[in-house]
Design a protein around this nucleic acid. Structure first.
Lengths: 177, 177
DNA sequence: GTCGACATGTAAATTGTTACATGATTTA
DNA sequence: TAAATCATGTAACAATTTACATGTCGAC
Protein backbone atom coordinates (compact mmCIF):
# COMPACT_ATOMS: atom_id res chain seq x y z
CA UNK A 1 0.00 0.00 0.00
CA UNK A 2 1.36 3.34 -1.05
CA UNK A 3 1.33 5.91 1.70
CA UNK A 4 -0.99 8.71 0.69
CA UNK A 5 0.29 12.24 0.93
CA UNK A 6 -1.29 14.31 3.70
CA UNK A 7 -3.09 17.47 2.67
CA UNK A 8 -2.06 20.92 3.82
CA UNK A 9 -4.72 20.77 6.50
CA UNK A 10 -3.28 17.45 7.63
CA UNK A 11 0.15 19.01 7.97
CA UNK A 12 -1.27 21.94 9.87
CA UNK A 13 -2.85 19.52 12.32
CA UNK A 14 0.32 17.45 12.55
CA UNK A 15 2.36 20.56 13.30
CA UNK A 16 -0.08 21.66 15.98
CA UNK A 17 -0.24 18.42 17.85
CA UNK A 18 3.50 18.05 17.58
CA UNK A 19 3.79 21.17 19.68
CA UNK A 20 1.35 19.78 22.20
CA UNK A 21 -0.95 16.77 22.34
CA UNK A 22 -4.51 18.04 22.30
CA UNK A 23 -8.15 17.25 21.64
CA UNK A 24 -9.90 17.77 18.34
CA UNK A 25 -11.81 20.60 19.86
CA UNK A 26 -8.67 22.45 20.88
CA UNK A 27 -7.40 22.15 17.34
CA UNK A 28 -10.65 23.55 16.05
CA UNK A 29 -10.37 26.46 18.46
CA UNK A 30 -6.88 27.24 17.27
CA UNK A 31 -7.98 27.33 13.64
CA UNK A 32 -11.02 29.38 14.47
CA UNK A 33 -9.45 31.92 16.81
CA UNK A 34 -5.99 32.53 15.46
CA UNK A 35 -4.98 33.92 12.14
CA UNK A 36 -3.37 30.56 11.45
CA UNK A 37 -3.74 30.10 7.78
CA UNK A 38 -7.18 29.88 6.35
CA UNK A 39 -7.93 26.42 7.53
CA UNK A 40 -11.45 25.44 8.17
CA UNK A 41 -12.37 24.82 11.76
CA UNK A 42 -15.71 23.16 11.22
CA UNK A 43 -16.17 19.77 12.86
CA UNK A 44 -17.00 18.30 9.47
CA UNK A 45 -13.47 19.14 8.39
CA UNK A 46 -11.39 18.47 11.47
CA UNK A 47 -12.76 15.18 12.71
CA UNK A 48 -12.58 13.41 9.37
CA UNK A 49 -9.03 14.76 9.02
CA UNK A 50 -8.10 13.36 12.42
CA UNK A 51 -9.49 10.00 11.39
CA UNK A 52 -7.49 10.15 8.17
CA UNK A 53 -4.31 10.84 10.11
CA UNK A 54 -5.01 7.96 12.45
CA UNK A 55 -5.57 5.62 9.53
CA UNK A 56 -2.30 6.80 8.03
CA UNK A 57 -0.74 5.85 11.35
CA UNK A 58 0.68 9.33 11.91
CA UNK A 59 -1.16 10.19 15.11
CA UNK A 60 -2.83 8.30 17.93
CA UNK A 61 -5.52 8.98 20.50
CA UNK A 62 -4.27 8.54 24.02
CA UNK A 63 -5.31 9.11 27.58
CA UNK A 64 -3.41 12.12 28.80
CA UNK A 65 -1.44 11.39 31.93
CA UNK A 66 -2.69 13.19 34.99
CA UNK A 67 -5.99 13.84 33.29
CA UNK A 68 -8.90 11.91 31.92
CA UNK A 69 -8.85 13.70 28.60
CA UNK A 70 -8.46 11.84 25.35
CA UNK A 71 -5.92 13.74 23.32
CA UNK A 72 -4.31 13.23 19.94
CA UNK A 73 -0.60 12.71 19.97
CA UNK A 74 1.81 12.63 17.07
CA UNK A 75 3.62 9.35 16.43
CA UNK A 76 7.19 8.96 15.28
CA UNK A 77 6.05 8.25 11.75
CA UNK A 78 4.09 11.51 11.92
CA UNK A 79 7.13 13.46 13.06
CA UNK A 80 9.15 12.01 10.21
CA UNK A 81 6.67 12.94 7.55
CA UNK A 82 6.24 16.38 9.08
CA UNK A 83 9.99 16.94 9.08
CA UNK A 84 10.24 15.92 5.43
CA UNK A 85 7.55 18.39 4.52
CA UNK A 86 9.28 21.17 6.46
CA UNK A 87 12.63 20.82 4.73
CA UNK A 88 11.32 20.13 1.25
CA UNK A 89 13.12 22.50 -1.17
CA UNK A 90 11.19 25.66 -1.94
CA UNK A 91 10.00 26.17 -5.48
CA UNK A 92 8.93 29.16 -7.47
CA UNK A 93 5.32 28.17 -7.13
CA UNK A 94 5.55 28.21 -3.34
CA UNK A 95 6.52 31.86 -3.50
CA UNK A 96 3.95 32.86 -6.09
CA UNK A 97 0.93 31.04 -4.78
CA UNK A 98 1.63 29.41 -1.47
CA UNK A 99 2.98 32.12 0.75
CA UNK A 100 0.93 31.02 3.73
CA UNK A 101 2.17 27.46 3.37
CA UNK A 102 5.77 28.68 3.43
CA UNK A 103 5.11 30.66 6.57
CA UNK A 104 3.33 27.76 8.19
CA UNK A 105 6.30 25.55 7.49
CA UNK A 106 8.62 28.10 9.00
CA UNK A 107 6.46 28.41 12.10
CA UNK A 108 6.58 24.67 12.71
CA UNK A 109 10.33 24.31 12.23
CA UNK A 110 11.19 25.45 15.71
CA UNK A 111 12.47 22.35 17.43
CA UNK A 112 12.19 20.01 14.48
CA UNK A 113 14.97 21.01 12.12
CA UNK A 114 18.56 22.08 12.59
CA UNK A 115 19.71 25.67 12.46
CA UNK A 116 21.61 24.83 9.29
CA UNK A 117 18.45 23.60 7.60
CA UNK A 118 16.55 26.65 8.73
CA UNK A 119 19.19 28.87 7.17
CA UNK A 120 19.05 26.91 3.92
CA UNK A 121 15.30 27.32 3.90
CA UNK A 122 15.38 31.04 4.61
CA UNK A 123 18.18 31.81 2.16
CA UNK A 124 16.32 29.99 -0.56
CA UNK A 125 13.17 31.84 0.39
CA UNK A 126 15.08 35.11 0.18
CA UNK A 127 16.51 34.30 -3.24
CA UNK A 128 13.20 33.24 -4.74
CA UNK A 129 11.33 36.13 -3.18
CA UNK A 130 13.89 38.59 -4.50
CA UNK A 131 13.47 37.24 -8.01
CA UNK A 132 9.73 37.31 -7.67
CA UNK A 133 9.57 40.92 -6.51
CA UNK A 134 11.93 41.88 -9.29
CA UNK A 135 9.77 40.17 -11.89
CA UNK A 136 6.66 41.90 -10.61
CA UNK A 137 8.40 45.25 -10.59
CA UNK A 138 9.78 44.83 -14.08
CA UNK A 139 6.42 43.85 -15.47
CA UNK A 140 4.74 46.67 -13.62
CA UNK A 141 7.10 49.35 -14.87
CA UNK A 142 6.28 48.62 -18.46
CA UNK A 143 2.65 47.62 -18.18
CA UNK A 144 1.30 49.96 -15.52
CA UNK A 145 0.33 52.69 -17.94
CA UNK A 146 -1.99 50.33 -19.82
CA UNK A 147 -3.63 48.83 -16.79
CA UNK A 148 -7.06 49.78 -15.52
CA UNK A 149 -6.85 51.81 -12.31
CA UNK A 150 -7.99 49.08 -9.97
CA UNK A 151 -5.94 46.42 -11.61
CA UNK A 152 -2.92 48.64 -11.25
CA UNK A 153 -3.58 49.34 -7.60
CA UNK A 154 -4.15 45.67 -6.82
CA UNK A 155 -0.94 44.86 -8.62
CA UNK A 156 0.87 47.43 -6.53
CA UNK A 157 -0.46 45.63 -3.50
CA UNK A 158 1.21 42.50 -4.76
CA UNK A 159 4.49 44.36 -5.02
CA UNK A 160 4.44 45.96 -1.59
CA UNK A 161 3.38 42.65 -0.07
CA UNK A 162 6.26 40.89 -1.77
CA UNK A 163 8.67 43.53 -0.54
CA UNK A 164 7.37 43.21 3.00
CA UNK A 165 7.85 39.47 2.87
CA UNK A 166 11.39 39.94 1.64
CA UNK A 167 12.21 42.43 4.36
CA UNK A 168 10.84 40.06 6.98
CA UNK A 169 12.87 37.23 5.55
CA UNK A 170 16.10 39.21 5.70
CA UNK A 171 15.42 40.29 9.24
CA UNK A 172 14.77 36.73 10.33
CA UNK A 173 17.97 35.48 8.72
CA UNK A 174 19.91 38.00 10.76
CA UNK A 175 18.02 37.31 13.94
CA UNK A 176 18.13 33.57 13.85
CA UNK A 177 21.84 32.93 13.71
CA UNK B 1 -35.88 27.17 -7.11
CA UNK B 2 -33.54 29.01 -4.83
CA UNK B 3 -30.62 30.59 -6.60
CA UNK B 4 -27.44 28.97 -5.34
CA UNK B 5 -24.64 31.23 -4.24
CA UNK B 6 -21.61 31.24 -6.51
CA UNK B 7 -18.33 30.18 -4.99
CA UNK B 8 -15.28 32.41 -4.77
CA UNK B 9 -13.91 30.77 -7.89
CA UNK B 10 -17.18 31.51 -9.64
CA UNK B 11 -16.87 35.17 -8.73
CA UNK B 12 -13.28 35.25 -9.90
CA UNK B 13 -14.40 33.89 -13.26
CA UNK B 14 -17.33 36.28 -13.42
CA UNK B 15 -15.03 39.21 -12.73
CA UNK B 16 -12.59 38.10 -15.38
CA UNK B 17 -15.09 37.63 -18.16
CA UNK B 18 -16.78 40.86 -17.21
CA UNK B 19 -13.57 42.62 -18.14
CA UNK B 20 -13.42 40.76 -21.41
CA UNK B 21 -15.34 37.89 -22.98
CA UNK B 22 -12.98 34.97 -23.32
CA UNK B 23 -12.57 31.25 -23.74
CA UNK B 24 -12.22 28.78 -20.91
CA UNK B 25 -8.66 28.26 -21.89
CA UNK B 26 -7.83 31.94 -21.57
CA UNK B 27 -9.31 31.95 -18.10
CA UNK B 28 -7.20 28.96 -17.19
CA UNK B 29 -4.11 30.75 -18.46
CA UNK B 30 -4.86 33.79 -16.37
CA UNK B 31 -5.21 31.73 -13.21
CA UNK B 32 -2.10 29.75 -14.01
CA UNK B 33 0.18 32.58 -15.08
CA UNK B 34 -0.75 35.51 -12.91
CA UNK B 35 -0.55 35.82 -9.18
CA UNK B 36 -4.32 36.16 -9.20
CA UNK B 37 -5.43 34.56 -6.01
CA UNK B 38 -4.78 30.93 -5.48
CA UNK B 39 -7.39 29.67 -7.82
CA UNK B 40 -6.94 26.37 -9.46
CA UNK B 41 -6.39 26.44 -13.18
CA UNK B 42 -6.89 22.76 -13.91
CA UNK B 43 -9.46 21.93 -16.56
CA UNK B 44 -11.30 19.78 -14.06
CA UNK B 45 -11.96 22.91 -12.02
CA UNK B 46 -12.59 25.55 -14.65
CA UNK B 47 -14.85 23.77 -17.10
CA UNK B 48 -17.25 22.44 -14.48
CA UNK B 49 -17.33 25.94 -12.98
CA UNK B 50 -18.18 27.43 -16.36
CA UNK B 51 -20.99 24.92 -16.72
CA UNK B 52 -22.25 25.83 -13.26
CA UNK B 53 -22.30 29.49 -14.17
CA UNK B 54 -24.19 28.75 -17.37
CA UNK B 55 -26.75 26.73 -15.48
CA UNK B 56 -27.14 29.58 -13.03
CA UNK B 57 -27.81 31.76 -16.07
CA UNK B 58 -25.02 34.17 -15.21
CA UNK B 59 -22.88 33.69 -18.32
CA UNK B 60 -23.41 32.51 -21.88
CA UNK B 61 -21.30 31.03 -24.63
CA UNK B 62 -21.34 33.12 -27.75
CA UNK B 63 -19.69 33.40 -31.13
CA UNK B 64 -17.33 36.33 -30.92
CA UNK B 65 -18.01 38.89 -33.63
CA UNK B 66 -15.25 39.15 -36.19
CA UNK B 67 -13.90 35.79 -35.13
CA UNK B 68 -14.97 32.19 -35.05
CA UNK B 69 -14.05 31.74 -31.42
CA UNK B 70 -16.59 30.61 -28.89
CA UNK B 71 -16.19 32.82 -25.88
CA UNK B 72 -17.95 33.13 -22.56
CA UNK B 73 -19.72 36.37 -21.94
CA UNK B 74 -21.26 37.66 -18.76
CA UNK B 75 -25.03 38.22 -18.76
CA UNK B 76 -26.88 41.02 -17.06
CA UNK B 77 -27.89 38.71 -14.24
CA UNK B 78 -24.20 37.87 -13.84
CA UNK B 79 -23.25 41.52 -13.65
CA UNK B 80 -25.90 42.11 -11.02
CA UNK B 81 -24.77 39.29 -8.79
CA UNK B 82 -21.14 40.30 -9.25
CA UNK B 83 -21.95 43.87 -8.27
CA UNK B 84 -23.77 42.72 -5.15
CA UNK B 85 -20.78 40.68 -4.13
CA UNK B 86 -18.44 43.61 -4.69
CA UNK B 87 -20.31 46.02 -2.46
CA UNK B 88 -21.23 43.56 0.27
CA UNK B 89 -20.24 45.13 3.62
CA UNK B 90 -16.86 44.01 4.90
CA UNK B 91 -16.75 41.99 8.07
CA UNK B 92 -14.08 41.24 10.59
CA UNK B 93 -13.63 37.78 9.20
CA UNK B 94 -12.86 39.16 5.75
CA UNK B 95 -9.91 41.01 7.21
CA UNK B 96 -8.63 38.16 9.36
CA UNK B 97 -8.95 35.30 6.94
CA UNK B 98 -9.96 36.49 3.52
CA UNK B 99 -7.50 39.15 2.59
CA UNK B 100 -7.13 37.91 -0.95
CA UNK B 101 -10.88 37.94 -1.44
CA UNK B 102 -11.03 41.57 -0.35
CA UNK B 103 -8.30 42.47 -2.79
CA UNK B 104 -9.97 40.54 -5.57
CA UNK B 105 -13.18 42.42 -4.97
CA UNK B 106 -11.34 45.71 -5.08
CA UNK B 107 -9.62 44.75 -8.32
CA UNK B 108 -12.92 44.02 -10.01
CA UNK B 109 -14.67 47.19 -8.86
CA UNK B 110 -13.17 49.34 -11.55
CA UNK B 111 -16.06 50.17 -13.82
CA UNK B 112 -18.76 48.38 -11.85
CA UNK B 113 -19.34 50.48 -8.77
CA UNK B 114 -19.53 54.18 -8.09
CA UNK B 115 -16.70 56.18 -6.60
CA UNK B 116 -18.83 56.71 -3.53
CA UNK B 117 -19.22 52.97 -3.02
CA UNK B 118 -15.52 52.45 -3.54
CA UNK B 119 -14.75 54.97 -0.84
CA UNK B 120 -17.20 53.32 1.54
CA UNK B 121 -15.52 50.00 0.87
CA UNK B 122 -12.00 51.33 1.35
CA UNK B 123 -12.82 53.35 4.47
CA UNK B 124 -14.41 50.32 6.04
CA UNK B 125 -11.43 48.26 5.03
CA UNK B 126 -9.15 50.83 6.65
CA UNK B 127 -11.15 50.86 9.88
CA UNK B 128 -11.28 47.10 10.24
CA UNK B 129 -7.66 46.68 9.25
CA UNK B 130 -6.59 49.30 11.79
CA UNK B 131 -8.43 47.46 14.53
CA UNK B 132 -6.98 44.16 13.42
CA UNK B 133 -3.38 45.38 13.43
CA UNK B 134 -3.94 46.96 16.80
CA UNK B 135 -5.30 43.72 18.22
CA UNK B 136 -2.36 41.76 16.88
CA UNK B 137 0.09 44.27 18.27
CA UNK B 138 -1.54 44.33 21.70
CA UNK B 139 -1.57 40.58 21.93
CA UNK B 140 1.99 40.38 20.72
CA UNK B 141 3.33 42.89 23.22
CA UNK B 142 2.17 40.86 26.14
CA UNK B 143 2.58 37.36 24.76
CA UNK B 144 5.78 37.59 22.74
CA UNK B 145 8.08 36.72 25.61
CA UNK B 146 6.34 33.38 26.11
CA UNK B 147 6.21 32.40 22.46
CA UNK B 148 8.57 29.93 20.85
CA UNK B 149 11.04 31.67 18.55
CA UNK B 150 9.46 30.59 15.28
CA UNK B 151 5.97 31.23 16.45
CA UNK B 152 6.99 34.71 17.46
CA UNK B 153 8.66 35.41 14.14
CA UNK B 154 5.70 34.10 12.17
CA UNK B 155 3.43 36.26 14.29
CA UNK B 156 5.60 39.26 13.53
CA UNK B 157 5.09 38.48 9.89
CA UNK B 158 1.37 38.76 10.46
CA UNK B 159 1.85 42.18 11.98
CA UNK B 160 4.08 43.62 9.28
CA UNK B 161 1.77 42.21 6.63
CA UNK B 162 -1.20 43.81 8.29
CA UNK B 163 0.60 47.13 8.50
CA UNK B 164 1.55 46.93 4.84
CA UNK B 165 -2.06 46.28 3.91
CA UNK B 166 -3.14 49.25 5.97
CA UNK B 167 -0.57 51.52 4.39
CA UNK B 168 -1.68 50.42 0.94
CA UNK B 169 -5.28 51.05 1.84
CA UNK B 170 -4.58 54.59 3.01
CA UNK B 171 -2.59 55.33 -0.10
CA UNK B 172 -5.37 54.09 -2.33
CA UNK B 173 -7.96 56.18 -0.54
CA UNK B 174 -5.91 59.27 -1.23
CA UNK B 175 -5.17 58.31 -4.79
CA UNK B 176 -8.64 57.35 -5.84
CA UNK B 177 -10.54 60.50 -5.09
C1' DG C 1 6.28 16.89 -39.88
C1' DT C 2 6.62 17.26 -35.20
C1' DC C 3 6.50 19.91 -31.03
C1' DG C 4 4.34 23.05 -28.22
C1' DA C 5 0.52 25.78 -27.34
C1' DC C 6 -4.47 26.16 -27.95
C1' DA C 7 -8.86 24.24 -26.63
C1' DT C 8 -12.29 21.35 -24.15
C1' DG C 9 -13.77 18.06 -21.71
C1' DT C 10 -14.84 13.51 -18.43
C1' DA C 11 -14.45 10.15 -14.44
C1' DA C 12 -13.13 8.59 -10.00
C1' DA C 13 -11.64 9.57 -5.72
C1' DT C 14 -10.95 12.77 -2.28
C1' DT C 15 -11.87 16.71 0.27
C1' DG C 16 -14.48 20.29 2.20
C1' DT C 17 -19.00 22.68 3.44
C1' DT C 18 -23.23 23.05 5.68
C1' DA C 19 -26.37 21.61 8.65
C1' DC C 20 -27.82 18.62 11.98
C1' DA C 21 -27.32 16.09 16.33
C1' DT C 22 -25.95 14.89 20.98
C1' DG C 23 -24.31 15.19 25.52
C1' DA C 24 -20.96 16.81 29.32
C1' DT C 25 -19.11 20.42 31.98
C1' DT C 26 -18.43 24.96 33.59
C1' DT C 27 -19.77 29.51 35.00
C1' DA C 28 -22.64 33.45 35.95
C1' DT D 1 -30.49 26.57 36.54
C1' DA D 2 -29.84 28.51 32.21
C1' DA D 3 -26.46 29.74 29.00
C1' DA D 4 -22.06 29.20 27.20
C1' DT D 5 -18.37 26.44 26.17
C1' DC D 6 -16.35 21.94 25.74
C1' DA D 7 -16.39 17.87 22.97
C1' DT D 8 -17.36 14.70 19.07
C1' DG D 9 -19.41 13.27 15.52
C1' DT D 10 -22.58 12.13 10.96
C1' DA D 11 -24.99 12.84 6.47
C1' DA D 12 -25.90 15.02 2.25
C1' DC D 13 -24.14 17.75 -0.84
C1' DA D 14 -20.83 20.46 -3.48
C1' DA D 15 -16.38 21.29 -5.11
C1' DT D 16 -11.61 20.12 -6.25
C1' DT D 17 -7.74 17.19 -7.60
C1' DT D 18 -5.63 14.08 -10.51
C1' DA D 19 -5.42 11.66 -14.34
C1' DC D 20 -7.02 10.54 -18.60
C1' DA D 21 -8.57 11.68 -23.27
C1' DT D 22 -9.00 14.02 -27.69
C1' DG D 23 -8.26 17.06 -31.34
C1' DT D 24 -6.64 21.60 -33.82
C1' DC D 25 -3.37 25.01 -35.21
C1' DG D 26 0.76 27.46 -36.00
C1' DA D 27 5.73 27.72 -35.92
C1' DC D 28 10.26 25.95 -36.72
Amino acid sequence: MTQKKPTLLDFAILGLIHQKAQTGYQIRKTFADTAMGNYSSSPGTIYPALNRLQKMDLIEKIQQKGSDKLVFQIKNSGVEILKKWLIKPLEKEDIEKKNHEVLLRFAFMDSLVSLKQKIVFLKSFETLQTEYVHELQTYFDEAAKDMPLHGRLAFEYGIVSGKTTLKWCKKVIKEIQ
